[in-house]
């Protein structure tokens, strides 16, 4: 079973040289720590920046320089700043190659729910609806089951949707799965030490198992 960093490490293998990538809050942020050597990606922060650098050294924080999670960050050589309308313009027009975000539920049709729980204080969708509606390629980083032990990979989402038919791939602590419309969750890889049976038991939506399922290769 993978921990959060393991999930981030596996997702980092999906990065390709030259990609523009938007990382959501939580596990997706950790992906930046595992970008493979020789792969150059540019991180987009939807509050208005391409070329997001690491956290600043203590004392170098700049209140005018934050990421979409409102954390202090730094620029890198080649950074570009712009406004929120242009930022979502580049997202909407499909210029961002890959979006990685968290989810509360994903359906076998690729629907995603990650912004609202009925009868709980709703904080808002932020940029999630814009991102999932537009990105060419969306990878969800999440736990396979929720805290109550219920599967988050469902035939249909029960929570209010963030977007429809948009998720392409899911990486959880147990598995890597591809969402194929009209088919379901196609199992691609198992986490180290996890059996197909365990993944089956944790998946409520239709799980497609074709042939031998390899174990993830981390490192």
């Amino acid at each position: 079973m993978l921990d959060k960093n393991g999930i981030a490490k596996r997702i980092a293998q999906e990065l390709r040289d030259g990609y523009y990538v938007n990382l959501g809050i939580g596990i997706p942020t950790l992906v930046a720590n595992y970008i493979p050597a020789g792969v150059n990606v540019i991180l987009q922060s939807e509050n208005g920046m391409l070329g997001m650098g690491p956290f600043p050294f203590e004392g170098d924080e700049d209140p005018d320089l934050i990421n979409a999670g409102k954390q202090t960050i730094t620029e890198i050589p080649g950074t570009a700043y712009f406004d929120s309308a242009l930022s979502f313009g580049m997202i909407r027009a499909g210029k961002v190659d890959l979006t990685i975000l968290g989810a509360m539920e994903v359906s076998e049709e690729g629907d995603i729910a990650n912004w609202k729980i009925p009868n709980k204080m709703v904080k808002g969708m932020g940029g999630a609806m814009d991102l999932v509606a537009a990105a060419k390629n969306i990878i969800v980083a999440m736990q396979h089951v929720n805290k109550a032990g219920e599967s988050k990979l469902l035939p249909k989402c029960s929570l209010p949707l963030t977007g429809v038919g948009c998720v392409k791939k899911i990486v959880t602590e147990l598995a890597v799965l591809e969402v194929v419309k009209g088919k379901g969750f196609v199992l691609l890889e198992r986490a180290p030490g996890i059996s197909v049976e365990q993944i089956k038991n944790a998946t409520a939506g239709r799980l497609i198992i074709e042939g031998d399922i390899p174990e993830m290769q981390l490192n």
Binding site: S84, A85, F88, G89, R92, A133, A134
Partner: peptide
């Protein structure tokens, strides 16, 4: 949605009464 929010401001500034967006 954040992009829609920004674009609804932008549209007002650009003199456009409405825009078509995918988000939501």
């Amino acid at each position: 949605p954040q992009g829609t929010l920004a674009t609804r401001c932008m549209a007002a500034k650009y003199g456009m009464p409405a825009v078509w967006v995918k988000a939501g």
